[in-house]
Design a protein around this nucleic acid. Sequence first.
DNA 1: GGCGGCGATGTGACGTGTCACATCGCGCGC
DNA 2: GCGCGCGATGTGACACGTCACATCGCCGCC
Lengths: 349, 349
Amino acid sequence: MTCHIARHTGAVTAEGTAQRPASIRDVARLAGVSHQTVSRVLNQHPSIRPETRARVTDAMETLKYRPNRAARVLVTSRSHTLGILTSNRMHYGPSSSIVAIEAAARAAGYSVVTTNLSSTDPEAIDAALEHLLDQAVEGLVVIAPQTRVAAAISSLAIGVPYVTLQSEDDGSHALSVDQIAGARLATRHLLELGHRRIAHLAGPQDWSEAEARLRGFAAELAAWDVPAGEPLLGDWTADAGYRAGRELLDRGGVTAVFSANDQMALGVLSAVREAGRDCPSDLSVVGFDDMPEARHFAPPLTTVRQDFEELGRRCVALLLGRLDGGARSAAPIAPELVLRSSTAPPRAR
Amino acid sequence: MTCHIARHTGAVTAEGTAQRPASIRDVARLAGVSHQTVSRVLNQHPSIRPETRARVTDAMETLKYRPNRAARVLVTSRSHTLGILTSNRMHYGPSSSIVAIEAAARAAGYSVVTTNLSSTDPEAIDAALEHLLDQAVEGLVVIAPQTRVAAAISSLAIGVPYVTLQSEDDGSHALSVDQIAGARLATRHLLELGHRRIAHLAGPQDWSEAEARLRGFAAELAAWDVPAGEPLLGDWTADAGYRAGRELLDRGGVTAVFSANDQMALGVLSAVREAGRDCPSDLSVVGFDDMPEARHFAPPLTTVRQDFEELGRRCVALLLGRLDGGARSAAPIAPELVLRSSTAPPRAR
DNA sequence: GGCGGCGATGTGACGTGTCACATCGCGCGC
DNA sequence: GCGCGCGATGTGACACGTCACATCGCCGCC
């Protein structure tokens, strides 16, 4: 008797276990159904008799079947993957956003590939985008100098929807977290305390967050008819805040600072202390983000809190919605002012 | 005359451009070679005439060809993807590690899928691991309560190598960043300043980092023949540090604290200040990590710096090495003590 | 009683890159 | 002059889910 089936593709050979993981067809064979039926079970197709379904799921379990993502992606050409492009990832805001986005994406059946920008050179941005596109991401979240990245994206003519975490003028790629309202809140607080000479320590202006916060600051001052000086520019780091703080103290004439994030505010506090001055009596400081450490600064920092959870959820919802055509954007998330001890009325003149 | 080729799979129809992205066969057709030759060009096979290679790369460019990752993964059954499992991702150490790992992985042609643990329940851990396994990750980096995760991993019988960021006793899954040496460095510094009643504010003991730092602390004290009290346990947050700081001050009797990370140290500083005491004259504080903000704490924090870049590189190298069989581990990375103003000799008795 | 229709399942092709093997031509050695 | 070997390239199968379509049995309706 000759073996008339020369090669068969069964996973389980006569003896011993096979190396290759079980496929849909192995499951089908064990359950005594066709591979298509197994596929239907996988995809929760309604027309499957409960008894059949049970046989299939049993077979899956005994074979430790795990669907092969690559095969599914190949045939459906949907990767169910989102990409996040970040720079400055170690900062609190971006980190929180990433966590929230990842959670929301996972809940929606998507996974997330992150790439951190080591520099903001166009080449680095291109390389990072290429890397993400190689993963066939279906959408992109940009937490980075958005204007630069946007340029790279349009120059690469990427056919992938993307969103940033901030509101923007055009509104097309925008997720409405109301940075402007937050900045106005912080500024108004200082104005209401009686400050009239208020400096803004802004983030890099190619970040849309930074730009929006600056706009909000300017808008609120204008509404109160208070003149705004040139903003100081920082790079989100405490070091930059420290340098800016020193400069402000040297220059004098300012009674309050609104910093575009908490870490720069920390640097300002440190400069104030080093100069032998006091916060808040010599200089009031307001931050932005409400990082968990902010309440333990010296003094505890008055700041603006953002709801990063909600931000991440909306971000993913927006992106997935856009994948399916619908592109409406939600109402802005209102940020919240958290009062602590780093602000006080200006010292009586 | 009948059309005798009923269906052809050409990407470019008679008129207009096709929707489907170009495949290897489209490139082959345009370049006048076989699909296999294109594949060889993609894989830098040596036996390709330069002229042929040029024709192929030209065709790739005009067709904007981008290799289909899913197809490649399917056939090679190598995903070229690593998974990172984190919790507490917003903290400085983990964030830095992730960034470094991502960079190293990308440099090695791998991409990284991250998953954040919202809780440390076994179910949440299992779900996160399942999620990563669904991505067919080839290796796993665990930045989380390693003992819990390790249990989940072994219960799931995952056939994937994994590493943690810390040295461990068994050494099998360990990446040698010498936490113990770092902790000894910090402790020795306090001892050399003359402190003899030193508290340790430890991290959660199911984190191997926390456990190692505690071990280093105890070892150094033992070497100096100084008794160690019960360590305080924190959860890495500044809030926990604050609570521990209050407890220490209430209890009294301690002249120095070694905190297992900088953020908890910040909380301690804040408690000291709130109690109207002074750091360092009433209480010396040493941190761990050297986050960029540490130098702007009040007072600037003496702490232990880790080289996260190197850590990430080694982590990826170890993981990829293990994929290819070789499993040697590298020499430990030596951490470094950074002296600032939060430590001083104990006040004269 | 026959047929439309639907529920439940099966069949075969497909997508895209890679693998194993086949083929072709040419130079070299004896 | 002939065959070997190698460089360069082509051929067909394959991996594994899903899609489109086919099939089969049964119920209900006229």
